[in-house]
Nucleic acid binder design. Structure first.
Lengths: 202, 202
DNA sequence: TGGCGCTGTCTAAGGCGATTAGGCTATACC
DNA sequence: GGTATAGCCTAATCGCCTTAGACAGCGCCA
């Protein structure tokens, strides 16, 4: 839906790029395609965005801001399993509604890491730690637990998005039971003074 | 390391593409680059591979075969937590040693899904189910558990590869404790006749 | 033994996307 | 009213993918 009258803006460019990414995949985000949707010639974008890399970077920032806000909102006012479930559902919902934006969020942070991106990433981490604090976790325990939770959520989102999970089992049930398992798992992280002594295996 | 004398072969092409993917990332896998490494002109590749898409597909098959074999070897002769840990370590080791191959493994399966790819994917699933059977899981319970395990492993591998986990906490410890949590979590999947009755929350 | 065809490489050429250089217009400001 | 500047444009280059078609070496068959 190209609109030709409104002036070209960095915000409009990012917006178009985001919808393109979500509708047709991150690889469909091309300067040509974005320019076409804005009824503009490709080189015109260079006055607002630093090439394709710059656009992807802006997209990453945008995605991280949306995601971090969604997670913070989900966590606010809840605790423990309640908070865990709310955050997890918010996370998965975001990944489903914005597959392109979500994908670009994890793409390698370019050299010149935007500080806004860093701030959002920190906010996501902070929200995670808030939730884990409800479980009585802090310090290294919280870091390990956060990695575990994030791994499970990202893994699920990525596999689902990639078309894994072909077997005819209810995906919502998978999520419910995974959250049950994560909830229990996280509880085992509390006060784990020293890592369990297991002989280095391999 | 270009070698000019040996004849061009589909195998050699895939081999070069694989090392390129692992060394410089999946995006570095370009017909030009592969051809250059083989001291050959780009169009010559078309007699062995169906364009870039075909090469990526072949790469995917290759990766899936390596991964499925590694997992099967790791699982053989072990059971329960022992098997879980061996398979998990094999999975993460593969992802670390072959980041490009691992990444292409999850890329969207092209239209014409190669049956060799399907066979390998089935073998991975079978290995996973073998491990879970040691926990007394089958049917939907096993499917849900398999998705959980795979999500956690893939998520960890992907986040690690993307440069997440910046905090200075030992990653090996993260894996150990995650496996502990997964082990406990998986045990809760046994004989889960009906999903836990939880009011639809959101 | 000599020709024929197949296989596999090459050159030539077209297309698309990114990027840079530089021109042109309209608006805003003096 | 004149000028500077912002912002869009055209023109042109480069790299990569892809297709078409020329050409050479090899084996096979008569």
């Amino acid at each position: 839906m190209p609109s030709r009258d409104a002036r070209l803006t960095r915000e409009r460019i990012v917006e178009v790029a985001a919808s393109l990414a979500d509708d047709q995949g991150l690889d469909a985000v091309t300067l040509s395609a974005v320019a076409a949707r804005l009824c503009v010639r490709t080189p015109s974008l260079y006055h607002h965005v630093q090439g394709l890399a710059g656009l992807k970077g802006a997209l990453r920032v945008h995605g991280l801001e949306l995601l971090s806000e969604a997670l913070r909102d989900a966590a606010s006012g809840r605790a423990e399993r309640d908070a865990l479930e709310a955050v997890a559902h918010a996370y998965l919902t975001f990944a489903r509604k914005h597959p392109g934006l979500y994908a670009v969020t994890l793409a390698v942070a370019g050299e010149r890491d935007d500080e806004r991106a860093h701030a959002s990433a920190d906010r996501i981490l902070a929200t995670t730690f808030d939730v884990l604090r409800g479980y009585g976790l802090d310090g290294d325990d919280a870091v390990h637990a956060a990695r575990f939770v994030r791994s499970a959520l990202h893994g699920f989102a990525a596999l689902e998005s990639a078309g894994g999970f072909e077997l005819p089992a209810d995906r919502a049930a998978t999520v419910d039971r995974m959250l049950e398992a994560i909830d229990r798992g996280v509880r085992t992280y509390v006060r784990h003074e020293a890592p369990p002594v297991r002989a280095a295996r391999r």
